[in-house]
Design a protein around this nucleic acid. Structure first.
Lengths: 240, 240
DNA sequence: TGTGAGTACGTACCGACGGTATGTGGAACG
DNA sequence: CGTTCCACATACCGTCGGTACGTACTCACA
């Protein structure tokens, strides 16, 4: 509440558009950095704004000047962590053309990302509860989910199957969920490397199944064409 | 804060072991019921203890007599919702012997459960953040995850593959994650029935792939035998 | 049937936290 | 050199989770 020194951590030497705005931007970054650290270590609920502003050596006035509230700070941190991870993944599978190899590569890269405590806590654990599922999805859509969707799409298209956007999204959701859950189990494992290897084997096995379907020329049953009734592929009793 | 009438909602007519304990049990149930409703509709953070005790027509003294705090109330609600869902699923697939059909049946039943706002909000959205991932996993382990693990195990064993417990757990984690994510997308969809059908198709397709692997006699690469080093199945560069 | 004991609450209160209203000092600009 | 405006600082409020303590009612036992 009573910072002794100047607000910003590091003062820029290369004034671009006025020192004022440079200071402002750096304090904002400082706030985000401190918040990221605290959110990652203690979680959202256990992190107070006082702790954040104290860590950034400013007061709440500064925080509320840059952000509309605590949730807005979290959103900024979330986006930073999320985009950082997705950039890393994207860089990891750059250059690879074969869809199947790309899938394995992306999986491996994702499993590495999920080891980061910040990603686990901010994105996976606290993200849905703090942002709500709508915002969470919306943010996710623009980064990691887009990557998965691209990979899944290329794999399935490489499989020779034609699927509409809805079906592609459905497959992607399934794989994203599988990845998060598996990734989470990897990160909490006693031996992350071993757990990671298991996940790779399991996912690779599932992918292999899809590849077999491709070679066998099995058709992908087309999704419902917006017909009112739900049609089950096999038996009866589709309650609810 | 100032309840007018008696504490309990309904007074029991069949005294079993003293009226006192009957009253006590009913107020506790009332607290859990009200909390379930509020947590489901507004979420954990937006629900105050005052609102809960007001809804149950008691005071905070009563709440803190039965629970150690807000989180304990949430745990009780969580367990109630979770066991209710897993019981429904278990009942739904009772009698079915064929593992593959059982898997589809369980999937369908799960997709129905996930439509329940209480399950979505309490278990999927707020659960991990409030309980923390350790407790969340622990609770999950004893209900829905156990079901999935049983089904996955029977499917894979029916496939003729031998897998150790770790590998079974890994596969189960993957499927649980896939199910939650897919289920969540179903519940937030404009047309849940259509989305549900899509998920069924996609998951059925993936299962079909595994069945093809079985028929082709493809071996499941065995997991690492607790060797210190992680061995990747295909290429090099297993960073992280 | 009185009486002590223990339980199931109610009451009053505290500290912490998120958020707000307002003050202020210095940089940018004329 | 004065004005303006922005980037903060200061002081304060309402609410919430949690606690300490009081109390009425019930049950065992005489």
């Amino acid at each position: 509440m009573t910072p002794k020194s100047s607000a910003a951590k590091l003062l820029p030497k290369v004034p671009g558009t006025g020192r004022r705005q440079q200071y402002s931007a750096s304090t904002k970054r400082a706030l985000i950095d401190v918040a990221e650290s605290l959110f990652s270590n203690q979680g959202y609920a256990a992190t107070s704004l006082d702790a954040i502003v104290a860590g950034a050596r400013v007061t709440k006035g500064a925080l509320y000047h840059h952000f509309s509230g605590k949730q807005a700070v979290f959103e900024a941190v979330f986006e930073k962590v999320e985009t950082s991870a997705s950039k890393r993944i994207a860089k990891g599978l750059k250059g690879e053309k074969d869809p199947w190899k790309k899938a394995i590569l992306g999986l491996r890269e994702f499993l590495a990302c999920v080891q980061d405590p910040a990603y686990r806590r901010v994105v996976i654990q606290d993200g849905p509860a703090v942002l709500g599922y709508e915002k969470f999805r919306e943010r996710e859509q623009r980064s990691s989910f887009a990557l998965v969707q691209e990979i899944v799409g290329s794999v399935l298209n490489a499989g020779g199957w034609e699927l509409d956007d809805e079906m592609l999204a459905t497959f992607s959701r399934i794989f994203v969920g599988a990845l998060s859950s598996a990734g989470e189990s990897v990160s909490t494992s006693d031996d992350p490397r071993e757990a990671s290897a298991r996940v790779e084997i399991a996912m690779g096995f599932i992918l292999e199944g899809l590849r077999m379907l491709e070679q066998a020329g099995v058709e992908l049953p087309s999704g419902p064409r917006s017909a009112g009734k739900t049609q089950a592929p096999a038996d009866e009793s589709t309650e609810a």
